[in-house]
Nucleic acid binder design. Structure first.
Lengths: 209, 209
DNA sequence: CATAATTTTGAACGACGTTCACAACAGACG
DNA sequence: CGTCTGTTGTGAACGTCGTTCAAAATTATG
């Protein structure tokens, strides 16, 4: 019968959603096994029939976050393309700004993507890594327009650098540790960074040799 | 008598050094109160006479890390200045590469600077924030040469953006999660990023309006 | 030297993720 | 319907963590 397996799937779904809510409200450190068990109405030990351990749960939440981020970046990229099909730099800026907006609107879920560390001895499963890589296409596509004569290798390296750089600006800009940078200012920083790199590429293409 | 206060200071020093060793070897998650107490030869509870809580201990270790980083950046900046006094961009590159080298050579201590979060309800003390700000001067000085006619505000914003961008590239490049990026390649990425931004500044100064 | 103040001690506390012996249960067969 | 068997849910118990605290030990004071 489907009763057992189906209800397990349903409960697993509830569990992931409860975990997502908990992280979104209280951050990764606010995710408690006992609280989740209470919320989905099962015993503490039953969690481990739905999920190997907390790491897997966090990865599943991360998977949902990445999927939502992917949709966001897609929309931003398409909108920019519709507005100015030949402005590849503008598309890069749009993706970067969308990334920043997503991080601002989902601060704790977004942070969890980076601050979570697997328990000692465990490795990030392959599917989780693949999901992260998927997102790169939003950067690689405009870059291909911007650098038609560069090799795939060079483009990939530059794409990763660009992503890392924007990510760094967003991560430090949204850090609660220091005073929060106002939205407009952070957006300007990001746009300036991307445009400066693009202008640099145009002026001195040999820099990425 | 100095006996009490002096021995406390001595023990506190030992404690911080033991904590630094523990973090350097096993990461922030490998820092255990009981282990430290054993190492400096005191009871578990006595730690709380030397330090308010673990957060303070981590901040003290962070302070030492920042001091060593400061020395490293200073040396790199001065060496670049001696080699080419008027090459401000080269000095920026040198500082960025030194930052990357420091992170690579002190991966866990460096990571701790960013991954540590205060316990709920506590705030990062003012002296710790000031120490972080101190480091900005290594970026601000070359930037002042590079943009003599920009305002302090603009320069500061660009400096922070530049730091954040380089930090992001280093952070993601050294992530153990994915395959480690080879040293040479990471250095090239960082140099390319900084030089691209500098070239962009030269070609399109209006971008930082 | 006696007395008061301070400091060290380690058992105890509460919270955490995870495990496990056992109880409850579901389905198969007579 | 009753019994047997394998699976699933249960929550107390385990080990670990940072932190606290009453008592013991040590140090300072008159």
């Amino acid at each position: 019968m489907t009763t057992t397996a189906a209800r397990r799937d349903r409960q697993r779904q509830q569990l992931v959603e409860a975990a997502e809510r908990a992280i979104a409200e209280k951050g990764l450190a606010g995710l408690k096994a006992r609280e989740l068990a209470g919320e989905i109405g099962c015993a503490l030990g039953a969690l481990y029939n739905l999920v190997r351990d907390m790491d897997e749960l966090v990865l599943r939440v991360g998977s949902r976050t990445l999927a939502r981020l992917d949709v966001t970046l897609d929309r931003a990229s398409q909108a920019a393309f519709s507005a100015a099909p030949q402005d590849a730099a503008g598309r890069l800026v749009a993706v970067a700004l969308a990334y920043c907006a997503f991080a601002r609107e989902n601060p704790r879920l977004w942070r969890t993507l980076f601050e979570h560390r697997m328990a000692e001895g465990s490795e990030v499963p392959e599917w989780a890594v693949a999901e992260q890589m998927q997102l790169f296409r939003h950067i690689m596509a405009p870059l291909a327009d911007l650098l038609p004569q560069a090799g795939d290798q060079q483009r990939f390296l530059l794409g990763r650098t660009l992503f890392s750089a924007v990510h760094g600006v967003v991560a430090i800009g949204l850090e609660e540790k220091l005073v929060a940078v106002p939205r407009q200012e952070l957006d300007r920083q990001i746009e300036a960074l991307v445009r400066l790199v693009c202008a640099g590429l145009a002026a001195e293409p040999r820099l990425i040799r």
